[in-house]
Design a protein around this nucleic acid. Structure first.
Lengths: 152, 152
DNA sequence: CCTAATATGTAGCCAAGGCTACATCAGGCG
DNA sequence: CGCCTGATGTAGCCTTGGCTACATATTAGG
């Protein structure tokens, strides 16, 4: 068990998050990023179904500004994860799990926007930023947001 | 110019963001996700250099909880983007651009944590969530955060 | 009822960001 | 002063999320 071998050193001296905590933190951020896309798709499909009655791949692609091929591949992943079902040429629909997820995502989205506005972020900026932020807000933080908003 | 052809319809009836706006919003969220990783690396390297004096691939990998191969590939991308430089077996260093980015990222990170804490999010939760959130907060929102914190 | 326009689906390409496995380098210790 | 160990680098594989190009369905309209 050597003491100062160059290639064995670790633990930098000054103030930084502990190594395992930081690793865990980044692992979470990575998985959040991974699920963010599918959450966005579920949210959009739910919106389209609610307002327009149907969610077609081309609609989805246009909304997201991607090619229809990209949208179709994403839909395939949604189906693989049991969040949506679709028969060829018949539009996309959400499973129960998909609906549940959509509701959670939407309420989280609203809460994030409300909080941003409450601390002085302009409405349109809040809407924009929330799109990215919402996927990284934990339940604990959401609870705090709710309390903050209720209390003033 | 047909009027109600099925496959030509668009514009769902009820309330939703306009199509181009929503597309733009998602495009931004996507690019933010893309740069998030490199920002994290730059931030970490800067921390390691500041506190430990050197940033080695293995240190970085351990901190992020990824394999050293993954870290090395990321470092290669940093170099390709002019954010870092490194000679084989000699550790990683930031370019001026890298340092600049690190400073911006760090101050943004602190601001986000401070805001979360100010609205009642527990410190440790704030630290965790900020890791993901920070990459999606626009300058406009940051300005609002600052104003909010100053004012209370 | 035909057909052209549009939507849908499929295939193949690319880059990013993970991984494991293997090869090479550097340096502290015996 | 050589070697063993840990750090570094390389190669090859996988998945995701983009894209374009091509092939196939559908359906509105004439």
């Amino acid at each position: 068990m050597p003491t100062t071998r160059r290639n064995t050193r670790q633990a930098p001296p000054l103030a930084m998050p502990a190594e395992p905590q930081q690793a865990e933190r980044h692992r979470e951020a990575r998985t959040a990023r991974a699920s963010a896309l599918l959450e966005d798709y579920v949210e959009l499909i739910d919106d389209l179904l609610a307002t327009g009655g149907e969610a077609r791949p081309t609609d989805i692609a246009r909304r997201f500004g991607v090619s229809h091929a990209t949208a179709i591949k994403a839909i395939a992943r949604l189906k693989a994860q049991g969040l949506a079902h679709a028969k060829p040429y018949r539009g996309v629909f959400l499973t129960d799990a998909g609906h549940l997820l959509a509701r959670r995502v939407r309420s989280r989205h609203r809460l994030v926007v409300d909080l941003l506005v409450a601390v002085g972020v302009p409405q349109d900026v809040a809407e924009n930023d929330a799109e990215g932020i919402e996927h990284h807000v934990s339940d604990a933080a959401l609870a705090a947001f709710e309390a903050f908003l209720r209390q003033r």
